[in-house]
């Protein structure tokens, strides 16, 4: 009769163990990347690694400053394009068009979220870079091209999450505002966006994480020259591109330096995540 108790206990222990799989994976990843990058970091020092300008592995110069700056600019540029477009799109779909229209367009955009990043990169090379080269000058494959391509890539993420956040705002807020004589736009601007803020911000942060972590599309369109960009038309190399480009043949200290680049990237991402979860937590506390 009590055999079920034994089985219940067994299942519970098994599930408890499974529940730690993601956390365990995360720690394992952090541990291995760190372990591989640490010899380099102790030998060269984190400060020299981050602030040195020259990356010449064959002559033992490992400075990733230009790559950090490039990653930050590319991400910033992508946000500049993706965030306003994405949020405008989400507001338009939720507040300004009939429901059925939203229910046809939103799925389309979400379907397109699945387009592989290599294809975005390819479009960047074939279509965008020549356009930039002929109309604006420079090599075409550039910070600008990478920003635009990444900005487009993160659009579906931002739109999807922002739409959900705006939809979650209770209708009574809108009705209350309209009843006080506000126009639809004033209501959106003063009430809806405020209430949906935390959701929209977490969507933007997620997009940011995706932009800073993107590798293949960036390799294809950014040009990959190791230098601090002077203008948006310059060719740049990001942290992720640096790892992927040289991992194939790197050995010894060079290889370790690439893993150390991974460590720096990892730290960036963790900072972003902590920021995102702090936002959400703060919002929950306010309610």
């Amino acid at each position: 009769m009590k055999s079920h108790n034994l089985r219940e206990k067994g299942v519970q222990y098994l599930l408890t163990a499974l529940a730690f799989s993601a956390l365990f994976g995360l720690l394992l990843i952090a541990l291995f990347i760190l372990k591989e990058g640490l010899p380099f970091l102790t030998q060269v020092g984190l400060k020299d690694f981050i602030f040195a300008h020259d990356w010449e592995p064959q002559s033992g110069k490992f400075g990733i400053y230009p790559m950090i700056i490039a990653s930050l600019w590319v991400t910033f540029g992508a946000m500049l394009i993706g965030a306003p477009l994405g949020i405008a799109c989400a507001v338009f779909l939720t507040e300004f068009v009939p429901r059925p229209v939203m229910h046809t367009i939103k799925p389309m955009i979400e379907l397109l979220a699945g387009i592989p990043s290599v294809i975005y990169g390819f479009i960047g090379v074939i279509v965008l870079a020549p356009l930039i080269r002929t109309h604006l000058g420079g090599p075409g494959l550039s910070l600008l091209a990478a920003s635009i391509i990444l900005g487009i890539m993160i659009l579906p993420t931002i739109i999807s999450i922002s739409t959900d956040a705006i939809n979650a705002v209770p209708n009574s807020y809108r009705e209350g505002s309209r009843a006080l004589g506000a126009t639809r736009w004033q209501t959106v601007y003063m009430v809806v966006l405020k209430a949906a803020r935390s959701g929209i911000i977490s969507g933007v942060i997620l997009g940011m994480g995706r932009a800073i972590g993107e590798t293949m599309a960036v390799i294809m369109v950014a040009g990959n020259a190791v230098k601090v960009p002077g203008t948006a038309l310059d060719s740049v190399r990001t942290l992720t591109a640096n790892i992927a480009l040289e991992m194939g043949y790197a050995v010894g200290l060079h290889r370790s330096a690439l893993f150390a680049t991974g460590v720096v990237l990892f730290i960036f991402i963790m900072l972003l995540n902590t920021l995102a979860s702090a936002f959400v937590k703060q919002e929950i506390r306010r309610r």
Binding site: G25, I29, I212, E214, T240, S277
Partner: peptide
């Protein structure tokens, strides 16, 4: 557990590749 999961979701694929 949820925080660990969110972090794992945010890790770039190149890092997964390295690992």
């Amino acid at each position: 557990i949820r925080f660990g999961n969110d972090c794992l979701a945010g890790i770039p694929s190149i890092i997964f590749g390295l690992f």
